[in-house]
């Protein structure tokens, strides 16, 4: 996974402007029934934020998937660049001491 936002558009040179009358693209994040974090579920087009929320409700919660919706215009989402993958994410691979399984606790101690 090299992009924070899987739906983000590829980086443009700034020259290509959106079509004059195409509704902007929005990214939709939904928090499900079980209290987990909002999760990116997809994108849609809408003229403004209110409409984007309505559409997100109609498009992405048809099967009772959510209890809360966030929308953000796609162009406002900042993302890591693929080239940063090594420096950003590989250093954490060596920090095994952050994971509970790194530590051996005798069975006699009981659940910990």
């Amino acid at each position: 996974m090299s992009s924070v936002n899987p739906g983000a558009l590829p980086e443009t040179d700034g020259k290509s402007t959106p079509r004059r009358n195409e509704w902007p693209l929005w990214e939709v994040f939904i928090r499900g029934q079980h209290g987990l974090n909002h999760r990116h579920v997809g994108s849609l087009h809408a003229p403004d934020a209110e409409a984007a929320i309505h559409h997100a409700r109609d498009v992405y919660t048809r099967r009772n998937e959510g209890v809360s919706i966030w929308v953000a215009e796609s162009r406002h989402i900042a993302a890591t660049a693929p080239g940063d993958k090594g420096p950003l994410f590989e250093p954490s691979e060596s920090k095994v001491y952050r994971h509970p399984t790194f530590y051996d606790i005798p069975d006699d101690v009981g659940h910990m």
């Binding site: 509704w23 849609l44 087009h45 809408a46 409409a51 559409h55 109609d58 498009v59 048809r62």
Partner: peptide, 10 residues
Amino acid sequence: VLEEDIALAN
């Protein structure tokens, strides 16, 4: 537009 199609069906 697709979004309206889906909303109207709802």
